[in-house]
Design a protein around this nucleic acid. Structure first.
Length: 385
DNA sequence: AAGTTTGTCAACCGCTGGGTG
DNA sequence: ACACCCAGCGGTTGACAAACT
């Protein structure tokens, strides 16, 4: 194959970087930008392979990297996104703009995974370990449904991450400021309207991601509908065991509350769906028609629908109210039902609160995403008929 | 104090997929 | 269609530090 030898080349240094090497790399990138990583080492006077330089830059030297301890909010974000995306660190990292995927991955493996396991939560499925022992009827079906939901959100986030990257690239080239990535993801997102409008259609990424999933066997529309029906119905009727959604870490003297107080989805849930959903046979979907659904912005409406009665995530770590020694669970079925529901509510909240979908004009590719979401809604509409 | 175990994290490895000629 | 280059990704390793015996 045509694989380049990279670090196998003799004479190239490996292992930890010295301050001198860092300085050389920094100085070169600040002056010239990284350009071709392969060509960079010789130009910068480094005895390293390009790949090593790239990793050193992206994981350590980049000026927009935040180092140090992860905040409680960052931890929650990682856990929630991991519940949706699994070990897709780069996708997770797009929601923690100043953290690298490598750092997040390390932090997960060394801290969060163990912490969850210690609390009896399976770090892979994010469900209480006891659930794994249950029979194949209720709980595993829920898990499968959530997995489908995760596929959907995963595809969406992947597309989003791609846009952020493209936007950053454009921002960099526009500013012509080599070696200095855009100050933050939000800045990149802020300038994304133009990027989106000229980007290749997003749905290609979405479908690729979707069909690339080993568990995906349905066609595009079938899958979207299936995800809608299972995810949202499950979202409403999900039940779990006692510890779902309640995370408590005694070792760090921090408490992660249930992701919001016990709430019921609004009685108007179904009627809201009726209001928002457009009949399946209503003809072609246009950006204009979608924008007017629910009297306003479709995406915002969809997000609000899902979250309409979900209490915002509790990020405070100072108030112990509501938690008990068994992790804030009273032991009643309704409580763990609510806790689990709120846990997934919070995940959806996190994803849907992405700046990507709010207060911006949607580009052409984004409408493909909108149509996927609309498929979901229509399916829910049918189920609620 | 010395040896051992455990934890952390930067760096590497190998695979994948997009782009190009 | 094919071979190759390149960058990105996730998994893994290994050096070092801290904690423990």
């Amino acid at each position: 194959m045509g694989r380049s030898p990279c670090c196998d080349k003799v004479g190239l240094k490996k292992g930890p970087w010295t301050p001198e090497e860092d300085q050389k790399l920094l100085a070169y990138i600040e002056e010239h930008g990284h350009g071709s990583w392969r060509a960079l080492p010789s130009k910068a006077g480094l005895q390293r392979c390009g790949k090593s330089c790239r990793l050193r830059w992206t994981n350590y030297l980049r000026p927009d990297i935040k180092r140090g301890k992860f905040s409680l909010q960052e931890e929650q974000t990682i856990i929630q996104l991991h519940a949706l995306l699994g070990n897709r660190w780069s996708a997770i990292a797009t929601h923690l703009p100043k953290r690298t995927d490598n750092e997040i991955k390390n932090y997960w493996n060394t801290h969060l995974k163990k912490r969850l396991a210690k609390m009896g939560i399976d770090p892979v499925t994010h469900k209480p370990k006891s659930d794994a022992l249950l029979s194949s009827d209720g709980q595993s079906k829920n898990a499968a449904n959530l997995s489908h939901m995760a596929q959907w959100e995963s595809a969406r986030l992947e597309a989003e991450a791609r846009l952020v990257r493209e936007s950053k690239l454009r921002s960099n080239s526009f500013n012509h400021h080599p070696g200095t990535p855009s100050a933050s993801t939000s800045a990149a997102v802020g300038g994304k309207t133009a990027a989106v409008s000229s980007s290749p259609p997003l749905y290609l990424d979405v479908l690729k991601a979707w069909h690339g999933s080993p568990t995906s066997t349905l066609s595009y529309s079938e899958n979207a509908a299936a995800v809608a029906s299972t995810a949202v119905i499950d979202f409403v009727g999900n039940s779990g065991s006692c510890e779902g959604g309640i995370i408590k870490d005694e070792g760090d003297q921090q408490e992660w509350k249930g992701m919001g107080s016990s709430t019921q989805l609004p009685e108007s849930f179904t009627s809201a769906l009726h209001d928002m959903a457009v009949p399946m046979d209503s003809g072609a979907w246009t950006p204009e028609s979608l924008k007017t659904v629910n009297g306003g912005h479709f995406i915002e409406g969809f997000t609000e629908l899902l979250l309409s009665n979900s209490t915002n995530r509790t990020l405070s770590d100072t108030d112990g109210g509501g938690d008990s020694d068994n992790g804030g669970c009273s032991g009643s079925g309704s409580d763990y039902y609510e806790d689990n529901k709120n846990y997934w509510n919070s995940i959806l909240n996190l994803v849907n609160s992405s700046p990507y979908y709010s207060n911006v004009d949607l580009g052409c590719g984004e409408w493909e995403m909108v149509e996927l979401q609309k498929l979901m809604l229509n399916r829910v509409y049918e189920m609620n008929e």
